[in-house]
C-alpha cells in the first residue's frame, strides 16, 4: 500500500476550509430559519377550515418528502434564469434547502399543535386571553416542548443536507473536500477533515440542545 495518511499535506488548503465552513454554517442557519417560517405557514394551511387549503398544505409536504433534494436544487438553480431572476448559487441553494426542509418542519409543527388539547384553548378563551396572549403564554410554550427533540434532529439534517449545495456550485465544505482532493490527490485526508467539520457541527447542536433543554424545561416528574 503506497498511501500514507499525512495531514500535513493539506495544511495549505485549510485556509479555504475556513471560508467553506462559514458557507456551510450560513447556508444551514439561513435555511433553518426560512424553513421554520415557511413550515409554520404550511402547518397553518393544513389546519385550515378550507378543504382546498388543507389539500395544498398536504401536497406541499408530500412533494418535499418524496422528491430528492438534489432534483429540487437543480430545478431552482436552472429555473432562475428562465424566470428572469439572476439567482446566485448560494441563493438557489438556500431557497432549495429551505423549501425542502419546510416540508419536514411543517410536519414537526403540526405534531406539536395536535398535541395541545382543545381544552387549553377553551380555558384560555374563558379566562379572557386574546388570541395573541393565548398563543404566547399558553400554546407556544407547550408546542415548543413537544417539538424540541424533532426540531434538533431537523437542524442536524439541514446541516448535513447543505452538502448538496456543492452540486450547484457553492464552495462549502463538501465542495472544498472535492476540490482539495482533486488538486492534492489526498482524498483520505480531505475526507477525514471534512468529516470532522460536520461531526463537530452536529455535536455542537447536540450539546446545545441538551444544555438549552436543561435550562428551559423543568416540568417535573409525572405523578401518573
Amino acid at each position: 500500500m503506497g498511501y500514507t495518511f499525512t495531514l500535513r499535506t493539506i495544511y495549505p488548503y485549510l485556509g479555504e476550509l475556513g471560508h467553506a465552513a462559514w458557507l456551510t454554517l450560513s447556508l444551514s442557519l439561513l435555511s433553518i430559519g426560512l424553513s421554520l417560517i415557511v413550515g409554520a405557514g404550511v402547518a397553518v394551511l393544513r389546519r385550515s377550515r378550507s378543504r382546498l387549503l388543507r389539500a395544498l398544505g398536504t401536497a406541499y409536504v408530500e412533494v418535499m418528502r418524496n422528491t430528492p433534494l438534489l432534483v429540487i436544487l437543480y430545478i431552482i438553480y436552472f429555473a432562475g434564469p428562465g424566470l428572469g431572476l439572476r439567482l446566485s448559487s448560494f441563493a438557489a441553494a438556500v431557497i432549495g434547502l429551505s423549501l425542502n426542509s419546510a416540508g419536514y418542519m411543517a410536519e414537526i409543527l403540526r405534531a406539536g399543535l395536535i398535541a395541545i388539547s382543545a381544552g387549553q384553548f377553551e380555558a384560555a378563551d374563558a379566562q379572557g386571553f386574546s388570541r395573541l396572549q393565548t398563543f404566547r403564554y399558553i400554546i407556544f410554550p407547550q408546542v415548543f416542548r413537544t417539538i424540541y427533540a424533532p426540531l434538533g434532529n431537523q437542524i442536524i439534517a439541514v446541516i448535513l443536507a447543505s452538502s448538496l449545495a456543492s452540486a450547484v456550485a457553492v464552495d462549502e465544505v463538501t465542495a472544498w473536500m472535492q476540490t482539495t482532493g482533486s488538486t492534492s490527490f489526498r482524498f483520505f485526508e480531505t475526507f477525514v477533515v471534512a468529516a470532522i467539520v460536520y461531526l463537530v457541527l452536529c455535536q455542537l447542536v447536540n450539546l446545545g440542545r441538551l444544555a438549552l433543554g436543561r435550562l428551559l424545561f423543568r416540568q417535573g416528574e409525572s405523578l401518573r
Binding site: 388539547s117 381544552g119 387549553q120 378563551d125 374563558a126 407547550q142 416540568q219
Partner: peptide, 17 residues
C-alpha cells in the same frame, strides 16, 4: 364578560407547563 365570569371545566384544563 370573561373578565367577570369564572369557568371551571370537567377536565380541569390547567396549563401543564
Amino acid at each position: 364578560v370573561r373578565k367577570r365570569v369564572g369557568m371551571i371545566f370537567q377536565h380541569f384544563n390547567l396549563y401543564p407547563h
